[in-house]
Amino acid sequence: MTIKQTFHKLGSPRSFDRLASILIPWFLSISVLLFATGLYGGLVYAPADYQQGDSFRIIYVHVPAAWMSMFCYVLLAASGAVTLIWRMKLADVVARAIAPLGASFTFIALFTGSIWGKPMWGTYWVWDARLTSELILLFLYFGFMALQAAIDDRKNAAKAGALLALVGVINLPIIHFSVEWWNTLHQGATVTKFDSPSIATSMLIPLLIMFAAFKTYFFAIMLIRARAELLWSERKAKWVCEHPEVRQ
């Protein structure tokens, strides 16, 4: 089978659904395992920080959520591009599945950051460039979801959402570089610095495990949502009517 054929087969709704139902339980159980080790690592194994004491442990939910909020947006925009250029139905389905998850990761990042800010900075919120651009990201997700809900015609909704997602991409470099381009209350990058990360290994390992946990979790939930969206949009198709989980 050539690469093109494989791609087409994967892109067919039926094989996507079949593959997704195999992958979902795997992703879910791996993410549960990773969350268990990551939480133990972050809350027990990692030592307290020299400056921030135990409050720094909020990093183990705050930073993975913030990374995921941006990762989800990259996927959302990529599906948007595929929707606009190739008019692929699956891309639209995946985009609709990603948006609420991206929004919830952004919400977690903002909320836990705010809880962390109170004891360390002395405030829950400041309008610095990092915090403001992350809040704009949340509104971009909300905007995308509102568009999907407001436009009845699926094709038009997909196009409008894809356009919004692509326009919003400009916010991603702003979020990432805001701490370098302007002076902000938020500190600079720790792990993605070009020189070696300025975090002790015993603190970094649980962070990376938590990141893997968030990522596998995301794929599991995204695939569940995508299956639902796909079955519904294909409800007139023969393969859905004959689907063992639908036929009673």
Binding site: A48, D49, Y50, Q51, G122, L185, G188, S198, A200, M203
Partner: peptide, 16 residues
């Protein structure tokens, strides 16, 4: 109002 800005370094106290 006084806010503290913390750095991006995370280390256990023993190392510092």
């Amino acid at each position: 109002e006084v806010l503290a800005k913390h750095d991006e370094n995370y280390m256990p106290p023993e190392i510092t």
